[in-house]
Design a protein around this nucleic acid. Structure first.
Length: 827
DNA sequence: GCTTAGGTTTTG
């Protein structure tokens, strides 16, 4: 009686096993343990087709999943009721006793779970069944049932790396004297017997804080960040998704598939995701998800109370009440724990420099050149600024000619670049799109009266830049369609003659910025930090006076340079008063590559004041990297307090290290000490900021001088202090801008030289922060609103000083703004 | 054939 089919006993969640048999945990299924008189219980989550081995032996493989408890179960799957059944067969003590030396598998219906509190990663094990037993088992096995296994033979699993299951498998065969008892789901009718083939497998979902390297898991998460699918440089589409769950752990997943439809259909941050069979790997010290064989996903709207309709490409998927409950719970959790942005930006609410996502309909498209492509889109609202029109050949423009003409005042041109071109080309006219991270760029306004907004979708995928096609079933699309149908085209055609301010009135869509500007009209948008008692001087008087002098003025900012604000950042040496451009990342990369040619000198490793770690990259270059962690009191500090030096690192590696450690100093080996790289490279990186030294005024010292700071009671690793001991004259980041000020009596150019006081933004941080760049642009838009007549510009109160600059050829008077800041309510 | 990308900068 090697395989016996049994029915469950009504109302009993435990199988009547011989008393000498004891339950074994999955974690104790290891070589060297005594498994006599032990049994293991698990769910059938997978079975493979019955096959024959080379010698003709039948072979059958099933996968059992260990019972486990995790937060989902904690919240709503427990307590579980005992399985219900009508048919019953009793296994007598004698029957069970008779198979003491046999392998026993008991298959019981329903779900019975252990309240095992661990969140172990490996939760499944392979069972290999040989011979007649394989054949018999294959006939009766059903997914979703619970197995109990006892008296088994253990062997190392050869498929551990691929399947991420238990390191051992269990072997069973009649020849070995095994026997199998099977308790199975009652099959009342012939119909249900057939249907039982599709019995739903029971999935276990791993919380994100319980993921382990090398496993394949199922999981739920809320989308915190995503890149819509884009064409990778390989053969597939790629999509990157960062999930979070109530464990508050993030998981970034890199998903590939040659079929666009097989990647998750995410439309918004806050969408809820269910992944099946995603592979977990460690990458850069963090867990990473990656597509594995059999990967499948479901995506749900993350709005609390919205209909729960999975978005998926699979025709077959499991989805039950349990899942519904999980989704709703994640929605509620996300609503109070995740910052999900407010209402979507419409074209009427676009603000220059503020990157935005646009839900729109494609009206026209055209090729522009090899690296850019034009999309003409509308969302039924009117952009309050004049927008640019990209010149294209009429024959290159695809779309309904009549509609393009009718909508000409409502469509905007979006120029997409590089990697987005291929996808853009394939878009169908009339389709609904969500374009992510569009850059509304102010065209350089040499002509002061008209300042245009250009819409760019730059190359690359940073910040989730990309294009997604929305189905007509999408709620946002439904809403947009209704709105588009209500737009009166006659109105929009009459608008051509109106100014943008009048248009705002017409559309009743005055942006916050606009009303804000009006408020600023009468009050000064800048304030003095001193000299309040002085009276104003007219610009004409100042222009007719000799320098040097100081004045208080009231004037309007007619224009400023540079218009590209990032160009206003320079590096200043306070010792020699020189100014220089901020080196770009490529320069640094080049210097790092050059320094990586020199291998780390092992004699300089592990000194009294730092510990060293070295390794060689596995790629062809065999690059040697050394990291020296500076100690304090002969101890390593916490990463966030640690200064480290790196040799042979790449730009990306250096960058990654700055995220974890307080200070990073790129160095290279000499014969007797480590030394700084060329001063065109930063001598120190802290957080987002790269600190540079003046080439002219610095006399770099060997880096062992740093040991004096390390020996301090509480090393603070201040950049100025580090610079000092290393013999570096540090350069400071400054804003240098030229303001053209007018007051009705005259116009003068005044320079702004500011570290951070004027804008309330540190110049050192602006290049690495999109947010701060946008903030600065908004400030400039308030000080000098684009597209305005002189009368409509706000007033600025400033303190300026005049000074002389003489050389052999000429003498000139210059003006500089100081003791002035942007008013708090403007920032 | 087994990569692609691996959230974090565009400056057109």
């Amino acid at each position: 009686m090697p395989v016996q089919l049994l029915k469950i006993i009504k109302g009993k969640s435990e199988i009547p096993l011989p008393s000498h048999l004891q339950k074994e945990d999955l974690k104790n299924l290891q070589e060297g343990f005594d498994h006599t008189n032990k049994y293991f219980q698990g769910l059938v989550i997978l079975s493979y087709p019955l096959t024959k081995l080379r010698d003709g032996t039948d072979f059958f493989k099933v996968v059992l999943q260990a019972p486990s408890l995790h937060w989902l179960e904690n919240q709503h799957l427990l307590p579980l009721s005992p399985p219900d059944s009508t048919n019953s067969v009793t296994v007598t003590e004698q029957q069970a006793e008779g198979c003491r030396s046999y392998l026993v598998i008991l298959l019981v219906t329903g779900v019975s779970r252990d309240l095992d509190n661990s969140c172990s990663q490996i939760n499944s094990i392979n069972i290999l069944i040989y011979g007649k037993m394989a054949e018999d088992c294959a006939k009766v096995i059903q997914h979703g049932d619970t197995f109990v296994v006892a008296g088994f033979k253990l062997a190392k699993s050869p498929t551990l790396r691929e399947d991420g299951r238990h390191g051992c498998h269990l072997e069973v065969s009649e020849e070995a004297g095994s026997a199998i008892y099977i308790y199975t789901i009652p099959r009342a009718t012939a119909a249900s017997e057939t249907a039982s083939v599709s019995v739903t497998p029971k999935y276990v979902y791993t919380p994100l804080n319980c993921l382990k390297d090398g496993t394949i898991v199922n999981l739920y998460g809320v989308v915190k960040f995503f890149k819509p699918p884009y064409v990778s440089k390989g053969t597939d589409y790629c999509s990157v998704v960062t999930l979070v769950d109530p464990s508050n752990v993030k998981l970034t997943c890199t998903l590939f598939n040659g079929n666009l439809d097989c990647l998750p259909k995410i439309y918004k941050v806050g969408d809820i995701i269910r992944f099946h069979r995603i592979k977990v790997r460690e990458y850069n010290g963090q867990m990473q998800g990656i597509t594995s064989v059999g990967f499948a996903s479901l995506t749900f709207d993350g709005t609390v109370g919205a209909p729960i309709v999975p978005r998926t490409s699979s025709k077959v998927y499991t989805f039950m009440d349990e899942e519904q409950k999980t989704i709703e719970e994640l929605r509620v959790w996300a609503a109070s724990n995740l910052s999900i942005s407010g209402p979507a930006v419409k074209l009427s609410g676009v603000q220059p420099m503020l990157f935005f996502d646009l839900t729109c309909q494609l009206v026209g498209k055209a090729k522009v050149d090899g690296s850019s492509f034009l999309l003409k889109v509308w969302d039924g609202t009117k952009c309050p600024y004049p927008t640019w029109k990209v010149p294209v050949e009429a024959r290159d423009l695809e779309g309904e000619k009549i509609l393009l003409h009718q909508l000409r005042n409502l469509t905007v041109d979006i120029l997409v670049y590089d990697n987005h071109v291929q996808l853009a080309k394939s878009l169908k006219i009339g389709s609904f799109l969500r374009i992510y991270s569009i850059h509304p760029k102010q065209a350089s306004a040499d002509n002061e009266d008209v300042s245009q907004i250009e819409f760019h979708l730059h190359g690359g995928t940073c910040y989730g830049r990309g294009i997604g096609v929305l189905p007509e079933s999408n709620p946002d699309v439904k809403e947009l369609k209704t709105f588009l149908e209500s737009v009166d085209l006659a109105d929009s055609q009459n608008m051509e003659s109106m100014s943008s301010v009048e248009l705002d009135g017409t559309f009743n869509s005055v942006t916050d910025l606009e009303s804000h500007l009006r408020r600023c009209q009468h009050f000064s948008v800048t304030v003095l930090t001193d000299h309040q008692d002085l009276n104003n001087t007219e610009l004409k008087t100042i222009l007719n006076s000799t320098a040097p002098q100081q004045y208080r003025i009231r004037a309007k900012l007619r224009t400023y340079k540079p218009q590209k604000l990032y160009q206003s950042i320079k590096l200043h040496c306070s010792k020699c008063n020189s100014l220089q451009e901020v080196p770009d990342g490529d320069d640094f990369d080049f210097i790092l590559q050059g320094s990586a040619v020199t291998a780390p000198n092992p004699e300089l490793h592990n000194t009294s004041w730092y510990d060293s770690v070295t390794w060689t990259t596995q790629d062809q270059k065999q690059r040697k990297i050394a990291i020296h962690f500076v100690k304090h009191d002969e101890m390593l500090q916490q990463p966030e307090d640690t200064l480290l030096m790196i040799e042979g690192g790449t730009l990306k590696e250096v960058w990654k290290l700055t995220k974890r450690f307080k200070c990073v100093i790129p160095v290279r080996s000499t014969e007797d000490d480590l030394e700084l790289l060329d001063l065109s490279a930063p001598f120190l990186l802290q957080g987002n900021i790269k600190y540079y030294g003046c080439k002219q005024c610095s006399t770099p010292k060997p880096v062992k001088s740093l040991s004096s700071i390390a020996a301090e009671q509480r090393p603070s690793w201040e950049p100025t202090e580090i610079a000092q001991v290393l013999g570096i004259e540090p350069l400071q980041y400054v804003f240098i801008m030229k303001f053209t000020l007018v007051d009705g009596t005259g116009a003068l150019n005044a320079y702004l030289f500011d570290y951070e006081k004027f804008f309330h933004i540190p110049a050192s941080e602006i290049l690495t922060s999109n947010f701060l760049q946008q903030k600065m642009q908004m400030t400039m838009n308030t000080l000098c609103p684009p597209g305005r007549k002189l009368d409509d510009l706000p007033w600025l109160e400033c303190f300026i000083k005049s000074y002389n600059v003489r050389d052999e050829m000429k003498h000139q008077v210059y003006y500089q703004i100081f003791d002035t800041t942007v008013a708090e309510d403007v920032v």
